[in-house]
Design a binder for these strands. Structure first.
Lengths: 329, 329
DNA sequence: CGATAAAATGTAATCGATTACATAATGAGG
DNA sequence: CCTCATTATGTAATCGATTACATTTTATCG
């Protein structure tokens, strides 16, 4: 039903080639014909069919974004960063929630390639060898965010250093017994490395590691809440708790509140991420900020560079973390 | 570079038509040939080009989602609901952040139509006549969420009733002076109607409206914070504050905390939305829940029905709101 | 003013699938 | 074993753009 380039050509009394030329204002077309064609285009409100175009030019100006879950904190900001830059370069984004489910991931990767996306931004906790192989086989540029793998460009922060910094900060504030709620063990990037940073800070300060102060969580509120209850039930309870992410830190705060502990006097709480809410809650949460928006933006900018033919080294881009002192410590 | 249907046909010793038939398992194809072709497809890892397919069959199995901003609360949940259902029916979603900016909106609508999306889910605060006309002219099915306009199917809640219910609840708790922080005035749906509900509840209870208790906000934390400071500086301060959304309610809580007012004893606070954070903060926020995920899911389900040719009446689907009592009142 | 180069436009092939229509293979029934 | 209906497969047009190449128009200049 909608008009095709042919119709425009007919009405303007030129060939389809000419119309295509004014559309892409490539090649040379006489000013007269240009305006003549433009007039028709505007009159009939002609909108070129991008699908047909894509078939010929072999690019779709759309990229895929694979994230675990848009409704969990952290991701919306990243996605927003991606979209803003994508928009700037006239790309659109197809959003895929994987729930960290391998089958869903697989399925999405397939439809994304079938739909001929120009590139993919991939976020996940851990990338297995299999997955990496699969990603490589796609022949489409891929940028990783908040995860890494040999052979792929990735946007990350230095989790070990960031975590160490936070724990050192707590140590400097005089805390000797610092509880930690870790992320999932199988999650290389945030899980292991943030715990690594914790241990490094202790070692540097000459404080002995007390395993009873470590409980493992899964990044969710509930696990932070329950982990804190466990830690706070200890005979020698910690004076500070560092949670691997803000969501769990919120759980810690909640736990403290049911135990009628005041923050930061009875218990200092530190988080990780600097999720939007961190500054809005009472008490405002001291946390290690990840530049979420920027991670998305930088990742997308990198991807566009690749798509524009620039040769990009496949190494990690490490963005700066930032310790934000607020009321909870 | 990737293999085409022709290549598969060649290797399998059949025609492209036959390959296409096994791909779409339509028509009749002999079991023998079916397996023969399938074998080749698997061997060479053939992936059909969805763009080429779309050009011919005139659908893209992708829909557009227009939202103000994915990084503001409320939307991620809705989007998640949409995506889950979309995924179920093999649709993908292109995410567009409009920032409620008319030009961006316009631009996105254009590229979405050029990219031949099969449908659009549109969220915005207010729909002007111009915009509605534009939407109609797109010839593509559109479902509205959290907004409405004559002639479009829309998924909403009854904001007036919900708001009235909340205020009545506060009144029943014995509050006589209830402050309200409204949304933007130009925002028909949530802004005006929630204030409307407030007034209705007062009238019903025979409480006189005191305009000094009404301050207008813009749905953002800061405006909630500042609005609360203003209200709490009143000679006769309110004993309860109802904010038009949770984000602002959080601002109210923050304001109360700097003024050293305890919640709910010195001040009751109520929000609207039941954003994920509402239950996680201290004190947990009493709020009017909107079924965000469900709104997305129902909206998308409606859209798929339309896309599958069902005739759907263009009226509002009103989902149930739900008053959630927590600690802040 | 005519030859020639440069600019503008047109013709038709192409991208990679689907599908109407034509044709070939198979099976049933006498 | 032959005819005819049915099933299976193949041929070629088509979707709506882009673009290589061919052709026409315009401009330049001796």
């Amino acid at each position: 039903m909608p008009l095709k380039i042919k119709d425009v050509a007919l009405r303007a009394g030129v060939s389809v080639a000419t119309v295509s030329r004014v559309l892409n204002n490539s090649d040379s077309v006489k000013p007269d014909t240009y305006t003549k064609v433009m007039k028709v285009i505007n009159e009939v409100q002609y909108k070129p069919n991008a699908i047909a175009r894509s078939l010929k030019v072999k690019n779709t100006k759309t990229i895929g974004i694979m994230i675990p879950d848009i409704s969990s904190h952290f991701f919306p900001e990243v996605v927003r960063g991606i979209e803003d830059i994508a928009n700037m370069y006239e790309y659109n984004i197809i959003l895929c929630n994987t729930d960290l489910n391998r089958e869903k991931e697989q399925k999405y990767l397939e439809v994304l390639t079938e739909k001929q996306v120009d590139g993919i931004i991939f976020m996940s906790n851990i990338i297995t060898r299999d997955l990496a192989l699969k990603l490589k086989s796609l022949k489409v540029p891929i940028v990783l965010i908040s995860t890494e793998y040999e052979g792929f460009p990735a946007i990350i922060i230095d989790n070990v250093a960031a975590s160490k910094e936070m724990v050192s900060y707590l140590l400097n504030k005089g805390h000797k017994r610092i509880g930690m709620i870790t992320g999932k063990e199988d999650d290389a990037i945030a899980g292991t490395s943030r715990y690594e940073g914790y241990k490094l800070a202790l070692r540097e300060a000459g404080v002995e590691l007390d395993k009873s102060l470590i409980v493992s969580g899964d990044y969710r509120f509930k696990s932070g809440y329950e982990g804190a209850l466990k830690l706070l039930a200890l005979p020698k309870r910690p004076t500070a708790i560092f949670a691997s992410n803000d969501e769990m830190a919120l759980g810690v705060i909640k736990a403290a509140s049911v135990l009628k502990l005041s923050i930061p006097d009875d218990l200092a709480v530190a988080g990780f991420d600097d999720v939007d809410m961190a500054q809005k809650i009472v008490p405002a949460l001291t946390t290690m900020a990840q530049p979420m928006y920027e991670m998305g933006a930088v990742g997308m900018r990198l991807l566009t560079k690749i798509l524009h033919g620039e040769k990009i080294p496949c190494n990690n881009v490490v963005l700066k973390h930032n310790l934000i002192e607020r009321e909870s410590c």
